[in-house]
Each structure stands twice: as structure tokens, then as C-alpha cells.
């Protein structure tokens, strides 16, 4: 959800995410108060910068992960549509979009394997008996295969990106650890001061007052209509 907000891209949210946001909105309308802790750091700029870098890397990593997953789901939906098109009447095996990425990739891979094999076998037969070959079918199957292949490449690209960003995140977090150990006043003592410098923890609450509730209701009504 954070990834979708940061990227302003609704497609990074799943249906379940949307459902949870709607539930949360209704809970807030019913008067739920959600306690939260806010962390802030004031003090040495090196530390502040290191923390900033780490947070940035972390959020980029989250976005990359969400992007990868949405690419996988795009391929899974494509596979499902093809299976439905092929057997419109029978009960078809469909990929469960909310399954884990590993499982979806595995199933998509076997779809591509199967498509390629069927097409290859047909083409070899058609070469021997060109007159009885259904060229429209061959073209259709080739289009499906090439489109799934393109989606597969997208997934691969997204996952390579996740790997690269993960490395950046590890580096940033190592840097942060290094700064912490360099600048730490004492390793094992928690120092409590006036709160001008150091890590600040604030307790806040998310809740809606009457006016805000009315705003949310108006917005929800637009969506629901």
C-alpha cells in the first residue's frame, strides 16, 4: 500500500489491500482510535543522513518487491485468460492470483513449457503435411507464446532490480550500524534527557473527528456510487 502511495500507482495494490483499506475506513468512521508510535531523530547530521538513506533504500526495496509481484500477477492473469478462452465450457484450472510468488512463477513456467511443446510438435507435423495444417491456430498460439514470453522477461527484469536494490539496502544498513557504533556515547546505557537531541519517540493517535468523518463519507459515497 505504501508502495502504491509513493509511486502513485494503483496497480501496485492488490484487491486484498483495497479491501483492508475499506475496512479500516469504516472502522475509523465507527470511532476506532489507532495508537501509533512516531520515531524522529535529531542530532548529528551524519546519523540523520544515514538513517534517511536507509529509510529511502527500504522504501525502494518495498516498491521493487510490490512491482515484481504485480508483474507476476499480470502473467498469471494472462495465463488464466488464455485457459478460459481455450476451454470456455469446461471447468478450467486457474492460477490463484493470491498465491505466493514462487508458486505462480512455477505454474507460469510450466504453462510456457507446455505451450512451447504443443506448438513445436504441431509445427513439425504441419511441415510434413502442410495442406492439413491450421495456420490460424499456429498464429494464435505463437502470439500467446510470444506475449507470455514478453511478460516473463518483465518479471525477470523486476526481480533483477529487487536483487540490486537489496544490495543497496544492506549497504545502507551497514553504514547506519557503523555510525551508531562510532557515535554511541555508551553501548549499554539508555540516556534520557530533555529530548532536544537523540531519538524521540512520540505517541500519537489516528482518529477522525465529526468533520473528518463527514469528509471521508462523502469521498466513500463517490467511490461506492
Amino acid at each position: 500500500i505504501f508502495a502504491a502511495i509513493e509511486e502513485e500507482n494503483d496497480l501496485l495494490m492488490t484487491d486484498e489491500d483495497v479491501e483492508e483499506m475499506i475496512v479500516l475506513a469504516f472502522e475509523l468512521l465507527c470511532g476506532r482510535r489507532i495508537p501509533m508510535l512516531v520515531f524522529a531523530y535529531r542530532g548529528r547530521w551524519e546519523l540523520a543522513a544515514a538513517l534517511d538513506n536507509m529509510e529511502k533504500a527500504r522504501s525502494e526495496y518495498r516498491i521493487a518487491q510490490a512491482t515484481g509481484l504485480s508483474r507476476i500477477r499480470a502473467l498469471a492473469s494472462f495465463v488464466n485468460n488464455q485457459n478460459l478462452k481455450q476451454n470456455p465450457e469446461q471447468e478450467t484450472f486457474l492460477l490463484q492470483i493470491n498465491h505466493s510468488a514462487d508458486l505462480l512463477v512455477e505454474q507460469a513456467e510450466s504453462f510456457l513449457d507446455q505451450k512451447a511443446e504443443t506448438l513445436m510438435t504441431y509445427c513439425l507435423k504441419a511441415k510434413k503435411q502442410p495442406k492439413s495444417a491450421d495456420m490460424r491456430w499456429v498464429k494464435e498460439q505463437a502470439d500467446v507464446l510470444s506475449e507470455s514470453l514478453a511478460l516473463w522477461k518483465e518479471i525477470r527484469k523486476a526481480y533483477e532490480r529487487i536483487g540490486r536494490i537489496h544490495a543497496v539496502l544492506i549497504k545502507a544498513s551497514e553504514r547506519w550500524e557503523k555510525f551508531i557504533s562510532t557515535f554511541a556515547v555508551s553501548d549499554d546505557k539508555l540516556q534520557i534527557g530533555k529530548g532536544l537531541r537523540g531519538l524521540k519517540v512520540l505517541e500519537k493517535e489516528i482518529a477522525l473527528d465529526a468533520e473528518q468523518k463527514s469528509d471521508v463519507c462523502q469521498q466513500l459515497a463517490v467511490f461506492l456510487n
Partner: peptide
Amino acid sequence: PPVVVAPKRDWYKALIEARRLI
């Protein structure tokens, strides 16, 4: 994250064979 292998040679082979036929 899942291991996403490189596109397989068989996938390309089938595509090339089909395109040749068309």
C-alpha cells in the same frame, strides 16, 4: 524472492518454428 530463470531456449525454438511456418 522466487528464482526467475532466463527464458528457455525451447520457448524461442517453438516461436521461431511457428513464425517460419506462417
